[in-house]
Design a protein around this nucleic acid. Structure first.
Lengths: 162, 162
DNA sequence: TCAAGATTGATGCACTTGCATTGAAATTGC
DNA sequence: GCAATTTCAATGCAAGTGCATCAATCTTGA
């Protein structure tokens, strides 16, 4: 007889899952609170601006922002509108693609990134980093990489400001 | 001279932080998609019902739900209303506290938990568990416990259905 | 005892998100 | 070369969330 058993999540895995939900939500919430307390917009704004700064020429198509941030298409569209209203990005028509838009980081957007980073970094430390040794941080990085599609074990993504 | 240096988040910790955000959002999103595809309500509904089932007598005050779930007070209030409208819980006046409400799991709510669990469990396995060995799951559990206030290293929380 | 303060839960309002759809332009396949 | 399909971005609508506030009740302390 062929064993057609489908593997079930073990108790240890279920516990780990529950803890991932709890701890990530808790820590993220605290970081968001600190950003807001310092008068800054939500992390999602930072993420989008950061992707723009990383990008060639400080500009991206919305569809590229979508791929890089996990935001849904309609949320990208509206977040970009809000960023543009606030002066942090500029929307231009794409020269090559008549359907498209190009979103460009402005000087003001660049300043926001720089201003937010110290606060953000300190929140990361106080809510997350201070609980970990260097080895533990590396281990978390390694383990969580397993859930990201197409990530090699050694790949490291840089979110630093400078 | 006294060293008043405030510890900064190291690059490894920042990488780990970024990965925590990405991976937890990715995995959670996929699990939510599977629940929805099976015609079930969001995970938050499951969480609240589960807390009720765990509680003495299958009932809790909303303020207790709030503490156990990380939901904000006003969201608990409204989620409970939705759960009550759908027949999964019952709201009663608290006999001891005139301000208060007692939320009780109904038979229908209990059934929902039972019906959702196989789908939820399989989603946990396919999006999360299948990427991990038993040891890795235990290690994630241990490491993420460091961010939860008042958790001892060995404490384990049970989200199983049966 | 009783006034001051704290806790519980709900809600009006503005904003954000999710869903479905649209219109426009690019790409594909014949 | 052109119709069918796909991709890109926006948006109307419904639902959910965050914030501030409220009314009711409970607790505290003089």
């Amino acid at each position: 007889m062929i064993d057609e058993t489908i593997e079930e999540a073990s108790p240890a895995k279920i516990e780990a899952w529950a803890r991932l939900l709890r701890s990530s939500a808790t820590v993220l919430e605290q970081v968001e609170i600190k950003l807001k307390a310092a008068g800054f917009p939500p992390l999602a704004w930072y993420d989008v601006l950061l992707e723009l700064r990383r990008a060639e020429g400080g500009r991206l198509r919305p569809v590229e922002v979508e791929k890089r941030t996990l935001l849904a298409q309609y949320n990208v569209s509206r977040l970009i509108d809000r960023l543009a209203s606030a002066g942090f990005v500029e929307k231009r028509k794409s020269p090559e693609d008549g359907r498209g838009v190009v979103v460009a980081l402005t000087a003001k957007g660049s300043s926001l990134l720089e201003d937010m980073w110290p606060v953000y970094k300190s929140a990361i430390q106080s809510e997350f980093g201070c609980h970990l040794s260097e080895d533990e941080a590396a281990e978390i990085f390694r383990l969580l990489g397993k859930f990201l599609p197409g990530e090699q074990a050694g790949y490291r993504q840089d979110i630093e400001n400078k």
